[in-house]
Design a binder for these strands. Sequence first.
DNA 1: CATTGACCTTCCCACAATGGGAAGCCTTAT
DNA 2: ATAAGGCTTCCCATTGTGGGAAGGTCAATG
Lengths: 160, 160
Amino acid sequence: MNIGEAARRSGVSAKMIRWYEARGLLPPAERSEAGYRHYTEADVHALRFVRRARDLGFTVDGIADLLALWRDRSRRSAEVKALATGHIAELRRRIAELEGMVDTLSHLAESCHGDARPECPILADLAGAAPARARAEPARFGKAVAGKPAARRRAAAAAP
Amino acid sequence: MNIGEAARRSGVSAKMIRWYEARGLLPPAERSEAGYRHYTEADVHALRFVRRARDLGFTVDGIADLLALWRDRSRRSAEVKALATGHIAELRRRIAELEGMVDTLSHLAESCHGDARPECPILADLAGAAPARARAEPARFGKAVAGKPAARRRAAAAAP
DNA sequence: CATTGACCTTCCCACAATGGGAAGCCTTAT
DNA sequence: ATAAGGCTTCCCATTGTGGGAAGGTCAATG
């Protein structure tokens, strides 16, 4: 079958199939006289494998590793599991990061009146977490700080 | 102060400062005779604002909107709040997506022995999951563990 | 047949944001 | 005056994905 058909059956776009091939994730497909790539059922199967792994958030490199293990019939399931747990840890790290943002923002949003008034703790926090006061145009006050290296995320609500 | 100093004080790299300027996020900085950009304390303040918003996961467009509101003294806090809640929703969407992956993978990893044997439900799932956007619902087969269910060997055998 | 339309090929461009690095000025301190 | 270190711009790479152009192929029509 041609690439379009393989794409339809695997759920991986033709563009991505070519890209994966170029990336070495998949072996170069057989070509017809005219240069058309053609695929077998086994190829479609592999493509579905790739797609599923991709849906689970694996990176291309991770997928390449998984594919290698899949093809290796003498693999040790421990290796597969290690890849999976490592990926789970990475996903959890990202989740925690996003949750930190949500926590901070939710907190700030809660204390924002959300009405016609301009006072807003969200902006106050972004502007420096400095408690109420001076909020003129952004190009005209000089009371800035200057020492500390900046504190990575983690916010404290500040209500004006 | 020059860009390097502004970068140090704001926590935004000089590279990113130039990039934000090019993107229209920040107004073009004043230049010296020789073409060096010059910044004031107020500029550093704005840069910190950008950096904080970036740390909270806002996109450049979102930050541009926030900056506009920050500069607008007659803004309505409702607008700021709307931006924030919209972003929170987006963050939660991403979290849910990642959690779906974690759920599926954790489930699979739990049922993988992780020893010297090649049988592995993780690979089996990747090799046999249904196409299309269905994820986070492993259900396919919840037990095909160690006992090497003959029917499932198809997976490994299908590898090129 | 020859034309048409659906396919395929490659190559370039774009995105999010960020960093790396080169080539070439500018400034400042020795 | 010379070296060190900043600054400038420009290009490239990243991770995946899609858009699109220019051109070759194939199958089914009129």
